[in-house]
Design a protein around this nucleic acid. Structure first.
Lengths: 354, 354
DNA sequence: GCAATCTACGCAAACGTTTGCGTAGTGGCG
DNA sequence: CGCCACTACGCAAACGTTTGCGTAGATTGC
């Protein structure tokens, strides 16, 4: 209210030049003489001039803001991704508006409205778990707002996206268990309409088949990937005539529940049952034993998605075909899946610890 | 690029009224007749009109955006707080820009610049761990941008803030341990220039004194509250002539480290050593045994802080004295601190579980 | 019947930038 | 000297809203 912030015209008056000259000087236009540029810059610094983004945005037709819709930001994955997004965006001179859908389509829809209302220049989305259709995104596309998905996407729609190779992740995880001598490997999977869970399961099945092992229906648990789902799932598995000797879970969360049940039943991990999870959550290093998990280098995903979005924004109007970026996940081997000889174990642990 | 979005003047032309009339009709001015208002609203809906926030912001001198600076958004606490902030802000028609300082003053300073550059109308801050001075905030105040701190604040500065009663939290935690019969209670504390850690420690000391127990220097560990600090701290404590029989930690993280060390040494929790943490992190329910912790109802804090900020913004210019809101924390009793009779234990657990 | 009040709307300026176009002044070239 | 190109800058419009003020026309009061 009190202090009027210095505007470009204030600078202009004090320097006896026009506003246009100041504007051009500040943006480093070469048609402005070296001398004037320096005078302008000096005064700008002296007065603590800060350009008014809204005015600039209004004039140029863009806001320099990017919108992000994620299911939630607690947990390791998305908060890291967001960090990557912020880093890349801010380097390109963009601000970031973050919305949480709380795994609800309804919220997701609202978030999109919010972001469009805020005049963002582009939107990054990772779908909520309950999103099965594309309608609310059509509106975004109709407005020609560039859109890039990451991690959780709806397949079969023509949109750019950054994903990790979930199939490879599932494959490596399962293969690792097989190499450790586990043979009856169960799988906890998430909602199969989501690409990530479907692919992780595919990788799991591919690895089994490659080793000539059957894919047993009874060893498959499709759930919501909560900790409690892991409890329930593990209980069921233990009641099977032949319980599994290992689990590859598409999330670390279920694994914590499963681990609890195993302990209740006096089963040892990794000796009796091997465990491999997905996402490399923070707490995966805190359980006893520590959980082997698939790391997705989340920050890189955030950066990649942002770069793809910025690129798409530049190519606006050309309507190029959507692009897909696929990142390779990493297996982080920890105690929960290691029952080979101690020497080999020690070596592996040393390699991948942290 | 392609579709030009409908503007207020487009509506005006199609309805043969002036832009001002449309503007007023949309904002529900009573000087506009019922009939015109309805026609305007109808057409607006038909054309999918969305007001241009930047233009409005430019004219009205505000952006309808709030800025938030937090140390990080991983972990339970801040992500929950942010959720509360978003809820309250969006209800009041504001968008939220989130910045992470990564516990670094330098970043914090940059974040503030970023937010001021983005023309936010108000700023919410929780200080980074390394912030010991106030200089970079003076700039914000000079621009008369309303500022509200939450949780981590610098004391002795005239600013509005929302905090929890950390002293009470520390007091209740320690008292609970005393009630469970523990007598030699150690404390893991964070950097004492931060209000939260200082107060938690005060509560701890108050409880001890109240029970006529000494506050032993050797039982005090001031550290950065990382998991590894808990490991180191616990190791040191176990080498004391008389090791403690319980720990009240100002963070759940250190406790996980401590727990690991205790297990290494074959000590049982809660039988040999009782543990109470702070923040009620997600993983506190995942350890074995589950950790008793102080819950801060984070979302409420986010909402309160936002309300306080919005209120401050309304009272701009009146320069009222800063206000402080103090929230009461909750003790969540779990297995790590319960060594009383099973019946009592069961009752307590049932009450506070989940 | 006329002033006063009220209703419902229009005019135009303003917010701070950006940018296409125009133009003084300068220097070079034939 | 005339012409052209070039440099360095100014003019003014435009972006889409909001809002103080002005004003037709209708209504009321006396």
């Amino acid at each position: 209210m009190a202090k009027k912030r210095a505007s470009i015209t204030d600078l202009a008056q004090q320097l006896n030049v026009s506003a246009s000259t100041v504007s051009r000087a500040l943006s480093g236009h070469r048609t402005i003489s070296e001398a004037t540029t320096q005078r302008v810059v000096a005064l700008a610094k002296a007065l603590g001039y800060q350009p008014n983004n809204m005015a600039a945005g209004l004039r140029r037709g863009r806001s320099n803001m990017l919108g992000v819709v994620v299911p939630h930001i607690d947990g390791n994955f998305f908060s890291q991704v967001v960090k990557g997004i912020e880093a890349a965006a801010s380097k390109a001179g963009y601000h970031v508006l973050i919305c949480q859908s709380n795994e609800s389509v309804a919220h997701e829809r609202e978030n999109l409205e919010t972001l469009m209302n805020a005049q963002v220049d582009g939107i990054l989305v990772s779908l909520s778990r309950t999103t099965r259709e594309f309608r609310h995104f059509e509106k975004v596309r109709k407005r020609d707002i560039p859109l890039v998905f990451f991690d959780r996407i709806l397949e079969g729609h023509d949109v750019s996206a950054v994903v990790i190779d979930d199939r490879a992740g599932g494959y490596r995880a399962t293969k690792h268990l097989l190499e450790q001598g586990y043979r009856r490997i169960a799988h906890f999977g998430g909602p199969q309409h989501l690409n990530i869970y479907k692919h992780r399961r595919q990788g799991y099945e591919d690895a089994l088949r490659e080793h000539g092992l059957p894919v047993a229906e009874e060893l498959l648990t499709i759930c919501d990937m909560k900790m409690e789902d892991g409890v329930a799932g593990m209980r069921r598995l233990l009641q099977l005539p032949t319980p599994p000797d290992a689990i590859f879970s598409a999330s670390d969360f279920t694994l914590v529940g499963a681990l609890e049940v195993l302990k209740e039943h006096g089963l040892r991990v990794p000796e009796d049952v091997g465990l491999v999870g997905f996402s490399n959550e923070l707490f995966s290093r805190l359980t006893e034993p520590k959980l082997t998990s698939i790391d997705q280098h989340c920050e890189l995903m955030g950066r990649s998605a942002t770069h793809l979005l910025l690129q798409t924004m530049e190519e606006q109007g050309q309507h190029l075909p959507p692009r897909h970026v696929v990142l390779q996940p990493n297996l982080c081997v920890r105690a929960s899946s290691l029952r080979l000889a101690p020497t080999a174990t020690a070596r592996l642990l040393a390699e991948s610890s942290r």
